[in-house]
């Protein structure tokens, strides 16, 4: 079964545990500025929205890379940056429609979410279930269940 990250912004409290878990997993340091998942706060509405790469099937970043430094991990569908190959040209950062591939000045390479090899640290750290790692074919299952509950689960 292929899995994917599923984000439910209504459950996010903006605690940033996901960002710290991400930077710790990838760099061994608590540093939100190195996180591949970002939480955005919208003060005027009170909304808090975590955002990261959704691992497009026909990934713009992968197709745009001139040196084939972004590869598909067939075990989980992640598009993974090969740091040894990346030349830091940043073309992928232009190609990505969502802004989820970013350059890291300190290393001279780009970085993006690679699903932590199939066990995403952000989902594990999220205390509210705003970020989950679920069956890619059924990311809507929980929302369907909630509506099913509303529609048909009334006691007589």
């Amino acid at each position: 079964m292929q899995k994917s990250l599923h984000i439910d912004p209504s459950k996010c409290t903006s605690c940033l545990q996901c960002e710290m878990a991400c930077s710790f997993e990838n760099y061994g340091v608590f540093n939100n500025s190195l996180s591949r998942i970002k939480v955005f706060e919208f003060h005027h509405t009170g909304a808090k929205v975590p955002y990261t790469c959704t691992q497009c099937d026909e990934a713009w970043c992968m197709h745009a890379c001139p040196v084939e430094a972004i590869k598909l991990d067939k075990t989980n569908g992640a598009k993974v940056v090969l740091e040894d190959v990346c030349v830091g040209c940043k073309v992928c950062t232009i190609a990505c429609p969502f802004g989820t591939v970013n350059y890291v000045a300190e290393t001279g390479k780009v970085q993006k979410c690679d699903l932590c090899g199939g066990d995403p640290a952000c989902a594990e750290a999220c205390p509210t279930g705003a970020i989950t790692y679920v069956d890619a074919n059924w990311t809507g299952l929980e929302r369907m269940r909630q509506w099913a509950d509303k529609l048909g689960n009334q006691s007589a």
Binding site: T13, S14, L16, Q17, T128
Partner: peptide, 13 residues
């Protein structure tokens, strides 16, 4: 009340 918000790193919120 719109919603609740955490401070940095807080899992209580």
């Amino acid at each position: 009340l719109v919603n609740n918000q955490a401070c940095f790193g807080c899992t209580i919120a």
